[in-house]
Amino acid sequence: MKRLSVEICVCTKCVMNGAMDIIEAVEGLKKLKTQLRLNSQVDIVTRSFCSGADVCPLVCVNGERMEHSNSETVMAKIISLTSKDVK
């Protein structure tokens, strides 16, 4: 099974701007593994890496930076990457 790395910045500003809710949304996605036909293991890493820049909340999915992200965009990104794998 492939692995998908989701790094979520949890600096003060990112947390205030919804980083914890993004974590919750990604964890919730794992529970929809069957419905979404996810064939990758989603690894969530939390650390502070946005360096206080005006990009909060910052998320990296498989190394790709997603600035000003939210639950919606991060979930869509994960699903698009895993659905490519299904094909």
């Binding site: 600096c11 003060t12 500003k13 947390v15 205030m16 650390r47 502070s48 206080g52």
Partner: peptide
């Protein structure tokens, strides 16, 4: 309080 932490640039790490 979180607003105050952000305003003051306080980082927990």
């Amino acid at each position: 309080l979180m607003g105050m932490f952000v305003a003051k640039g306080i980082e927990f790490g």
